[in-house]
């Protein structure tokens, strides 16, 4: 058994230590937000936050997490009470198929937590690792920009 703290809750996980965090989140903890995209850290669909930093959960072994806190999109807000960033993505309708969007929000969340008011260049550079195939980039950027400018309620 390995201890894993996710969204403030301590879990006892049976998975092997080499198991990528992604599969632990999706299968052992039955969470949907982090997605399998490439398994190689090339697309960011699996992005979660570990101790404040965005990580590719698909290439992060469970054993490497240790006592560090994992935050997934389920930890930001809920359908009834979305976080400011989630609410901004909804307000901007910043999704088409939406498969990449949880990863986008988690990467952006990590930036805004460390730097609440990043400029446009910083946002774009920070988001570079995450891929969107539908071409929703303009809305993703707009949704982040509004929160970065402190314009949300």
């Amino acid at each position: 058994m390995i201890e894993l703290r996710v969204n403030g809750v301590l879990h006892q996980v049976e998975a092997g230590p080499e198991t990528p965090l992604l599969y632990v989140l999706r299968n052992d903890l039955r969470m949907n937000g982090a997605k399998f995209g490439c398994g190689m850290g090339q697309c960011g669909a699996c992005t979660v936050i570990v101790q404040g930093k965005p990580v590719f959960s698909c290439v992060t072994p469970l054993s490497s997490i240790g006592a560090r806190e994992v935050v997934t999109i389920e930890g930001l807000g809920t359908l009834a009470h979305p976080s400011p960033l989630q609410a901004s993505f909804i307000a901007h309708q910043a999704a088409q198929c939406g498969y990449c969007i949880s990863g986008m929000i988690m990467r952006a969340q990590a930036l805004l937590a460390a730097n609440p008011h990043p400029d446009e260049a910083t946002i774009r550079e920070h988001m570079e690792p995450n891929l969107c195939r539908c071409g929703t980039h303009m809305r993703i950027l707009a949704a982040i920009r509004v929160v970065a400018a402190g314009e949300h309620a």
């Binding site: 039955r30 949907n32 997605k35 399998f36 997934t72 909804i90 309708q93 999704a95 939406g98 949880s102």
Partner: peptide, 21 residues
């Protein structure tokens, strides 16, 4: 009309066949 599927997709809802259990 706001898309009916987006709120679930940005809050970790089961939205895809990949999410079926």
């Amino acid at each position: 009309l706001p898309r009916v599927d987006i709120p679930g997709k940005v809050t970790g809802g089961a939205a895809y066949v990949q999410d079926m259990r």
